[in-house]
C-alpha cells in the first residue's frame, strides 16, 4: 500500500511535508504502531528501567508541552530540557499526548487565567509591556490568553505532577508489580511465545 502511495507521489522537496502528514493521517496503522510502540516502551521503563524521579521529571516536562499550545516557542526550551536533563524521554512523549487531551477540556479555564494575568493583574502590566517590546519574545505568543493561561497552569502543576508520579511509580513497583509477578498467569505468559515475541520486538 505504502509502495503504491510512493509511486503516486514522486519525491518532491517542496511537497514532502504535506505528503508525509497526509500519509500518516490516511494510514492510521502507522499512527497506531507508533503509539503501541511508545506504550510498550513506557511499560518497560515503568517496570524497572528508569528511576521514579526520571519518569516523573519526563512526565512533568511533557505536561508543560501537552497543556500549552504545541506550536509555541517556549516548547523548544522544554524540548531542550527534556533532551539535556536526566529525565525519561518516552515518559515525556507519552505525557504530551495524555495532557493534550486533558488540556482540551480545560481550555476555557486557561483562557480565563490568561486573561486575568494579562489584563486584570495590574502589577504585571509593566512586565508584559517590557516583554512585548522585547525582540523575539512576541513570537512566544505570551500575550495570547490561552498560551499564558495554560503555561501558568502547567507551571503551577509541575511540582505536584512530579511528586504524585514519583509516589505513584514507587507504589506501583512495590504493590502492583509485585502482585502481578506472583500471579500464575504472569508466569504462563512469560513462558509463552507471545512474550518472547514482545521481548524481541521491544
Amino acid at each position: 500500500m505504502i509502495t503504491l502511495w510512493h509511486k503516486k507521489n514522486a519525491f518532491n522537496r517542496k511537497n514532502i511535508f504535506p505528503t508525509v502528514l497526509t500519509a500518516i493521517l490516511n494510514y492510521p496503522t502507522i499512527l497506531v504502531m507508533i503509539i503501541v510502540k511508545l506504550i510498550l516502551k513506557f511499560i518497560k521503563i515503568l517496570n524497572k528501567d528508569a528511576s521514579p524521579q526520571q519518569i516523573a521529571g519526563g512526565m512533568a516536562l511533557g505536561a508543560i508541552a501537552g497543556i500549552t499550545p504545541i506550536a509555541s516557542l517556549h516548547n523548544l526550551a522544554v524540548l531542550i530540557l527534556v533532551l539535556m536533563l536526566r529525565v525519561n524521554i518516552s515518559a515525556a512523549i507519552l505525557s504530551v499526548g495524555l495532557f493534550k487531551a486533558f488540556s482540551y477540556i480545560l481550555d476555557p479555564l486557561f483562557n480565563k487565567i490568561g486573561y486575568s494575568l494579562l489584563v486584570n493583574a495590574g502589577p504585571l502590566q509593566s512586565l508584559w509591556t517590557t516583554l512585548y517590546n522585547t525582540p523575539i519574545v512576541p513570537w512566544t505568543q505570551f500575550n495570547n490568553t490561552l498560551t499564558m493561561g495554560s503555561l501558568a497552569f502547567s507551571l503551577i502543576v509541575f511540582w505536584p505532577v512530579y511528586f504524585v508520579i514519583v509516589w505513584a511509580v514507587k507504589k506501583y513497583r512495590e504493590r502492583v508489580l509485585a502482585m502481578f509477578q506472583k500471579w500464575k498467569i504472569t508466569h504462563i505468559l512469560k513462558g509463552s511465545k507471545i512474550y518472547h515475541l514482545y521481548k524481541t520486538y521491544s
Partner: peptide, 16 residues
Amino acid sequence: APPPPRIGKNISFPFH
C-alpha cells in the same frame, strides 16, 4: 467579550 476557546485572544500592550 470573553476570548474564544481553543484560540484565545491576543492582548496588545503599548508598543514603542
